[in-house]
Simulated scan of single mutants.
Amino acid sequence: MTQPAYQRIADDLRRQIFGGQLAAGDKVPSRARLREQYDVSDQVAIQAVRLLISEGFLEARSGSGTYVRRKPTLKRLARSWYDTSGRTSSPFRTEMASQGRAGNWRVSSQTAAASPPVAERLDIAAGDPVMESRYTFLADDEPVMLSTSWEPLEITQGTPVMFPEEGPHAGAGVVARMREIGRHIETAQEVVTARPVLAVEADRLGEALGSVVMVIARTYATVDRPVETADIVVPVDRYELAYVIPVE
């Protein structure tokens, strides 16, 4: 299949950005220059530039032109096997504190019916009641990542940890909260994939449409069953994941 001309131009400009020929802050060729260089119409040149703007590679400056976007310095998010020695603070706050940053979050929780994919991950029936919590995690008041978590209500209903961010154990993290009701988490499985950001996620994260995000599908389980699962969304242009795995 023949590649559309605007995609061919966008691919070439991407290669120049990745290869360093076009550095952050550099002005990209004008519409007229692209038209002449690639022997295309004005409309095709505009489409190519608009595609790269939507993907977050370029930014348009009114009255000045289009430039290679300066991306934030890549920061690391450590994914460590959970310390079971009795820690009761949030792993996210602990990680941000290690970077000298203030970690916090916004959250809303409500009961919901488990979708088929969530039910499969929690080993419950589709439609079973779960506590669904939607988080926006912040570092120094800037959005870092998003998370939607689900916990089976058959485990937590009527207990002090039913609402993750309310009650005496609010904000302690899943492992510590579950320990309070006699559920000792033994394993944490994480499956990492990548995809384009959704519009609602781009708005919450301050990302451009077309940007790529990592999605971590995490499931905590006791020796008997899964007790929580979550989808964690992380922008790839701002963060890298580092896994720390103990070797016996």
Rank of each mutant, 00 (worst) to 15 (best):
F137W: 15
W105N: 14
M96D: 07
S109E: 10
I181R: 08
R177A: 08
M178F: 15
A176T: 09
A78E: 14
R93E: 15
A97T: 15
E165R: 14
T111R: 10
R177P: 02
G158F: 08
T187W: 09
Q110V: 14
R79H: 10
R183D: 01
H184W: 08
A113E: 09
L122V: 00
Q110R: 14
A113F: 06
A119K: 03
L146F: 03
S109G: 13
R101I: 10
V130F: 08
R79P: 02
V130M: 07
I181C: 01
R87T: 11
D128V: 00
R179T: 09
M162A: 10
T94G: 06
T136I: 15
G103P: 12
V175M: 04
A102N: 07
A112P: 02
A172P: 04
T156N: 01
A126L: 07
A170N: 08
P152T: 06
R101T: 11
P164Q: 11
D140R: 00
W105H: 14
Y135G: 01
V118Q: 01
E120S: 13
W150P: 02
A114P: 09
E166K: 03
A113D: 07
G100V: 09
A170F: 01
P152N: 04
G167D: 10
A119T: 03
P143G: 03
R87N: 11
M178T: 06
I185F: 05
